[in-house]
Nucleic acid binder design. Structure first.
Lengths: 163, 163
DNA sequence: CCCGCTTAGTTGAACTCTCAACCAGGAGAC
DNA sequence: GTCTCCTGGTTGAGAGTTCAACTAAGCGGG
């Protein structure tokens, strides 16, 4: 176990930069959203996913997978969103174990109100500082990492089914 | 306010990929550390910073700045690390308001024990899947973002003082 | 039909993080 | 000296996340 391949100076630098970007990005985005709308970033993500689905409803498990949250986390989150009146739980007609999460009109309204500020912040932090070429590079690098982890790329056309 | 510059399809893809990478990376690294050593990733970071300082001690404010944590967060974290016996608080001789955090021998030992597994995980997740060229690109992109946010780059030689 | 295995989802406790309020000591003006 | 402002750091409450334990329902074999 003592034959660890440590990071050399260059790798250290890259790693620190990456960790720093990770941290600051999350912090900034969450702070902006929380301050201006009261919605934590992670809940915003859920609202977005629901809003993009036809019928604005999704099985809990589907929603969890799409947003890459644990079932537990999602369950807690949806409970909170339900208390806020932004999401409604409905039992699934085809599987009695299942639950559907449905975005309410109030939830949609809150999302619509929050979106511009959030997108503006994203642009300010990530897209504006980089050239188009660099943005593309960044996307490709991230996708390559994701693929190496066994996920499907985000850029390519709708990865709905595997057929 | 309605003239928001929304993300086009390509930007959406890049953004989703980035968010996904952010999330998974944090989750995986934290889980590995927590599982194998019981140390949360954020506390590990603190131990690393202390271990790299001559004398293995640092002012709370210095430590907070280096690790990019809020003072409050750091204070809570150091309290926890103190309970574990890995860090000791000492009052600062030159400024009675100040506190020093000092890494204990036990803390150093825990860090030494935890490091190989962590570095291996980092390699597995980030460095192995990418070519040397891509790693360099990634570092440059992250540094460019950091600089645009007013931080100093991570790759370049020690940004200790501004003189 | 019933037993065991798996999947869907929830729950509660323990832990971390954030935010705002707070105390104490330094630093300059008068 | 003392008044005021600023800086260093801590604290407690509230909120989100994780983990493990749990319920309920589908699924398959005997």
């Amino acid at each position: 176990m003592s034959d660890t391949r440590w990071l050399d100076a260059g790798e250290q630098g890259t790693w620190r930069a990456l960790v720093s970007v990770l941290g600051r990005l999350n912090e900034q985005l969450d702070r902006q959203l929380q301050r201006d709308t009261g919605i934590p970033l992670t809940y915003y993500e859920i609202l977005v996913r629901l809003s993009e689905t036809p019928g604005r409803e999704l099985r809990m498990s589907e929603l969890a997978e799409q947003s890459e949250y644990s079932r537990s986390r999602l369950s807690h989150a949806v409970s909170k969103l339900e208390k806020l009146g932004w999401v409604r739980r409905k039992s699934c007609p085809t599987d009695k174990r299942g639950q559907l999460a449905e975005l309410t009109d109030e939830g949609m309204a809150s999302l619509v109100a929050a979106a511009p500020g959030h997108v503006t912040e994203v642009r300010k932090l990530v897209f504006d500082p980089l050239t188009a070429r660099e943005v593309q590079q960044l996307g490709e690098l991230c996708d390559k990492l994701r693929v190496s982890w066994g996920d499907s790329p985000c850029d390519s056309p709708c990865p709905e089914t595997t057929q």
